[in-house]
Amino acid sequence: MVITPILRLVFSLLSLVDTSEFFEVKNKIVREVIDFVKGHRSLFDHVLREDISEADELVMEQINLVVGILSKVWPYEESDECGFVQGLFGLMHALFSRDWESVSSARSVQSVENKRKSELNSFRLCFSLSSYLYFLVTKKSLRLQISDVPPDYNAAVRLQHPTLSLLGSFLTSVTTALERATEEKSLLLNKIRDINEVSRQEVDEIINMFARQVCMSSSDNIQKRRYIAMVEMCQVVGIRDQLVTLLLPLVEHVLNVFLIHFQDRSLVSDANGSLKAITYGAKSEPGQDISSLCGNLIPTLERLELLSEDKVGHNLKVFRRLVTSLKEMTIQRLGS
């Protein structure tokens, strides 16, 4: 299909643009891409409306490309006459509220390799969405409610922003995925290191678990079997490392969104001095209890603090500083 290659080309062109030039929209490539998006509004709108739960590999790639393009150029478009912002927020609701464990179980009929690729593509989409949300919060002063409020049927239709409670739940899911990926990566690296000590039975189990296709016969000796097992494990380690590399900045985006909200004066107190609500704009919405949000957030932050730099394979100095800062502020808010 010609659509996917064109979207790949447009997305690749944006990688050539310096971040500072996005903000001013002074780069010719950025202007051309915005015009391209407006000129193909129906295509972008159609892709944004695709059912993620039913999307095959091709459709998922198209969704990733469309969201990746919009997350880079659309924050700078002042008007949203095309309705893409609501489409992006709709995807946030669908993905951030997803039960990732049940999704993994539902795909049990898929091969292990396809499961890993599917998980990677889904979180790649989450990363683009979190980047877009992070920009709106930091550059456009968007402030989120703690939780959903009853709809006002007399009011005009408003954008359904994600809530902080939704982000908190999503952060827990991402943390679980990050822990699982780092543990599997570390375990496989240890097996690769000790491959010459692994018994034939365990080698065969590894091959049966990870091999993408049958590539040995019963007559193959232990050296060849160990080599095949090592190659297959290296493939998996590469995919898991891709996921870890993706999840770390995704978590940072979410942590920063929380940090900005907790630092903002829109976090207000009631008459008793108890922190109750986060406002959007100038309008306060009393009755939203932040203590529940903070109480749910702290265990997740404590899990993030325990991530091992050796297992993750990345420098976590800045990451840990961010986690610690948010945890301290969350505890302060909880005790206020």
Rank of each mutant, 00 (worst) to 15 (best):
T279F: 07
A282V: 08
I278T: 09
A277N: 10
C234I: 07
A271F: 12
I260E: 05
L267N: 02
V268T: 14
N256V: 03
S284I: 12
L248M: 05
Q263A: 04
E285D: 12
V257G: 07
L255C: 08
C294T: 15
A277Q: 04
G295M: 06
V268P: 00
L248C: 02
S266A: 11
C234A: 13
F262L: 15
L255R: 10
T245Q: 05
P286D: 01
V237Q: 11
I239T: 13
Q288L: 07
R240L: 15
D270C: 10
H253D: 15
I239V: 09
S284R: 15
V257R: 01
V257W: 00
L246W: 02
E285V: 13
K276M: 03
R240G: 03
V237H: 05
S284C: 10
L248K: 03
I239G: 00
P249W: 01
L255H: 04
A271R: 10
V257N: 00
L275F: 11
V251F: 00
N256G: 07
H253Y: 13
G295T: 08
V251T: 11
R240T: 05
Q235E: 14
F262D: 05
Q235L: 12
F258Q: 13
V236H: 02
D289S: 06
L259S: 12
L250D: 03
D264K: 10
L267F: 01
V268C: 04
L255D: 03
L243V: 03
Q235M: 04
V257C: 03
L250W: 06
F258K: 03
E285R: 10
L246A: 01
H261G: 11
L248I: 15
L248Q: 07
L246T: 06
F262V: 11
E252W: 00
I239H: 02
Q235C: 11
G287W: 10
K283C: 08
H253N: 15
A277R: 08
V251D: 03
D289F: 01
Y280D: 13
G281W: 04
A277M: 13
N296H: 12
I239A: 05
Q288E: 12
N296Q: 12
A271D: 15
Y280E: 14
